[in-house]
Simulated scan of single mutants.
Amino acid sequence: MNKWLTLALIAFSTLSWAQVTDLDSLQAQLAQHSLVRGDFTQLRHIEMFEQPLSSQGKFTLSKQQGLLWQQTTPFPVNLVLTQDKLRQSFAGQDPQVITAQDNPMAFYFSHVFLAVFHGDTEALQEQFDIEFKRGSNQWTIELTPTQAPLNAVFKSITLEGEENIEGLTLQEVRGDKTQILFTNQTHQPETLTDAEQAQFSF
């Protein structure tokens, strides 16, 4: 690679990092892109089991439409979450659709977790105490629920990353924990594909 291009990339990276110093600058960085796609690995730690339960797949997060979560292993699961609907389907089964009217509590949690996935710190401040930390190579925010029903389920929710959210940890009150690692993230193409748009149209 041309040394000037290398220096330019380093300078851009340093500038980007310099901008992330608090919640406001983090919010601004995460809001730069309306779409992010990538791979995920989810590790579910259950106290009664020695080894975590692992699953992998792909995700698409759209600020306008919602979350498309496509698990591929250990078995296929397709989940689409919007502001007012949730559709999930397992291999060989008809999809199930739940609306906000059907289950208001489920959508209370869904709206919170869309805000978590988006890193929407303004919305999160309504539900959590937020602690921001800046390390040498990443930022971390720890969310502590301040009201029911979240504080009856979760002890804390931790987000960490650099340009994007790269890790999400859900620590439950009862001791179980879920870790989700996000890799191979991209913002291209900048609009939903026809196949992705079709997933959100239900």
Score class of each variant (00 low, 15 high):
136 S>T: 09
61 L>Q: 09
39 D>S: 13
146 T>C: 05
127 Q>F: 06
54 S>M: 14
62 S>N: 04
46 I>R: 13
27 Q>E: 00
108 Y>A: 12
84 D>F: 06
152 A>N: 14
85 K>C: 13
117 F>E: 00
87 R>S: 13
71 Q>M: 15
123 A>Y: 04
51 Q>M: 05
102 D>W: 12
103 N>A: 11
72 T>D: 10
176 D>M: 00
66 G>K: 06
187 H>L: 12
9 L>F: 09
125 Q>C: 14
16 S>L: 01
147 Q>Y: 01
20 V>N: 11
129 D>L: 10
36 V>Y: 06
127 Q>C: 03
33 H>T: 05
126 E>Q: 15
88 Q>H: 09
121 T>C: 02
64 Q>H: 11
27 Q>G: 00
41 T>I: 02
103 N>C: 12
65 Q>R: 15
167 G>E: 01
6 T>M: 11
87 R>A: 15
89 S>I: 12
36 V>D: 08
106 A>H: 09
166 E>H: 07
14 T>E: 06
61 L>T: 09
172 E>T: 13
24 D>A: 13
39 D>C: 08
41 T>H: 09
88 Q>G: 12
169 T>I: 14
139 W>V: 01
116 V>M: 04
7 L>M: 13
12 F>I: 03
166 E>V: 03
49 F>I: 01
47 E>S: 07
124 L>Y: 00
197 Q>P: 10
196 E>K: 10
4 W>E: 13
169 T>K: 11
68 L>I: 13
135 G>F: 13
19 Q>I: 06
8 A>P: 09
85 K>G: 13
84 D>W: 07
196 E>P: 08
164 N>F: 03
94 D>I: 08
87 R>H: 10
2 N>Y: 05
190 E>L: 14
10 I>N: 07
134 R>I: 01
124 L>S: 07
174 R>G: 14
113 F>H: 08
180 I>Q: 03
16 S>Y: 00
149 P>N: 01
135 G>W: 09
178 T>C: 02
159 L>F: 03
18 A>N: 14
119 G>C: 00
53 L>D: 03
55 S>F: 02
97 V>G: 10
175 G>C: 11
42 Q>E: 15
23 L>T: 03
29 Q>N: 14
145 P>H: 01
131 E>D: 12
158 T>R: 07
48 M>T: 14
115 A>C: 04
152 A>S: 10
29 Q>A: 14
148 A>R: 07
187 H>T: 15
163 E>Y: 00
159 L>G: 04
180 I>K: 06
128 F>M: 05
95 P>M: 03
67 L>R: 12
157 I>E: 10
149 P>G: 02
47 E>W: 04
170 L>Q: 07
138 Q>V: 04
72 T>W: 01
164 N>G: 06
134 R>E: 15
84 D>M: 02
80 V>C: 11
159 L>Q: 01
84 D>H: 06
29 Q>S: 13
196 E>T: 14
34 S>F: 04
106 A>N: 12
91 A>Y: 04
196 E>Q: 15
175 G>Q: 06
45 H>T: 02
142 E>V: 10
193 T>I: 08
132 F>C: 03
7 L>D: 13
